[in-house]
Design a protein around this nucleic acid. Structure first.
Lengths: 236, 236
DNA sequence: ATTACTAATATCCGAGTAG
DNA sequence: TCTACTCGGATATTAGTAA
């Protein structure tokens, strides 16, 4: 009984059709494809594939030219934006679901910084807490690391300035911190304000992140090696 | 006539249901949601929403507990992987569609490097071509820049080593190059082997990328300011 | 309240086919 | 060949309820 031909933007058949088109366009700017071929891609008949293409054109997600037997399709800006919007949504979802890592042993570089008075004073002043004298190390999967890095790009770091120790005659470099909160995966009620320590010369191989907090996190969250933690950014 | 209840993984109704669930779970590990509420999110009836939840559970994308009137849903690993797979596919699509920028004026830092013999010899040796004495500057949108950065992470750079010039008594830092090819958006047939110059002290504000090639790209591709170029990375 | 069954109905798909 | 129409049958959704 509906009069508008149900060609709406939240029709997921259309979304999937666009998605598959994009996948098959690859790096060309346009694709020559018949409705039969497209039907094969979508696991649908030529007739339905043809209707999909029509619908996508009506929505304005694609542009299409039929020249004789040849049909040339290109994705419009509007269509690319639809893909982009979904991409961004998925990224957000994954960041929320997946920024999770395992507690791993040792207090490495991070702990070193906390114990140097020139840094410690700054941590205390700029982070708003006096950090425990060691850091908690979190091991991330490649994907988690990647997602974390992407996330950090959108954060404004707390910059701990470098300084010189004249007596020792040596220089200490600047360090960036990223405010976050950490919690056990199995108890989201207790979230501890923390900071990720971003040290210049990072391990490129090991996806380990160092967490700074006021409390001794292993005790506070009753953590042992291998326990899983979620890192969150209490953002905007 | 089909006996298997058509609860398949490539059923996009299920995919969208999972997607919307994820969006509403947010950073909680689980969500309390009734089928009526879920129906509102999906723009579907309570009955259909209920069936969707059942289906998702059967596929193994979610896990669900009904305790009295309360229904608690959590995404399984398998479900998260489905989202992740789509994310990765979209990223690939966007990289192919969207790594596009506008030609902008000037030969900036890049050109400087090419003219220094200590660098030039290395460019020639390691890139396999003797670069033109200036670079082409490409202005990227924030998103394009972001996608490019992500892409570069997966590339192995050609490292141009730093060196010292004893006569001048100064040091030159290392530079990373990323092999790519560039082409006009409106003529994908001509692709020019090039390299992105990754200079340490990048403009953090301006999303400008510098391209090195054997030919004078402005001439070779008949470019003027504002023309759009696609940057591609030939295969993985 | 809930979830979810069954039956009625709305929607979608593809065979046949025209242009 | 192509695209894309009509229309009957297949499938999905919802209304009415039960539990």
């Amino acid at each position: 009984m509906k009069l508008n031909k149900e060609i709406s933007q939240d029709n997921y058949a259309n979304w999937f059709a666009l998605y598959h088109l994009c996948q098959n366009i690859g790096s060309q700017k346009a694709i020559h494809i018949s409705s039969t071929e497209f039907g094969k891609i979508l696991n649908l008949s030529q007739q339905t594939a043809s209707r999909r293409i029509n619908d996508l054109e009506e929505i304005g997600w694609i542009q299409r030219k039929i020249i004789g037997k040849d049909q040339v399709i290109r994705i419009t800006k509007k269509g690319a934006d639809v893909i982009l919007a979904m991409y961004k949504n998925l990224r957000q979802i994954l960041e929320e679901i997946l920024i999770v890592g395992e507690v791993t042993e040792g207090m490495k570089e991070g702990g070193y910084y906390v114990r140097i008075p020139g840094y410690l004073a700054q941590f205390q002043e700029k982070l708003g807490f006096k950090p425990y004298f060691g850091t908690l190390n979190i091991q991330l999967s490649d994907l988690n690391k990647e997602l974390l890095e992407e996330n950090l790009k959108n954060q404004i770091p707390v910059r701990i300035e470098g300084f010189e120790d004249n007596k020792l005659g040596r220089t200490y470099g600047a360090v960036d911190c990223f405010i976050c909160s950490v919690s056990r995966l199995d108890n989201q009620d207790v979230k501890v304000d923390s900071a990720i320590l971003k040290i210049k010369r990072t391990h490129h191989k090991k996806n380990i992140v160092e967490i700074l907090a006021e409390d001794y996190l292993r005790e506070k969250l009753k953590l042992k090696d291998g326990d899983r933690l979620r890192i969150e950014f209490t953002k905007k």
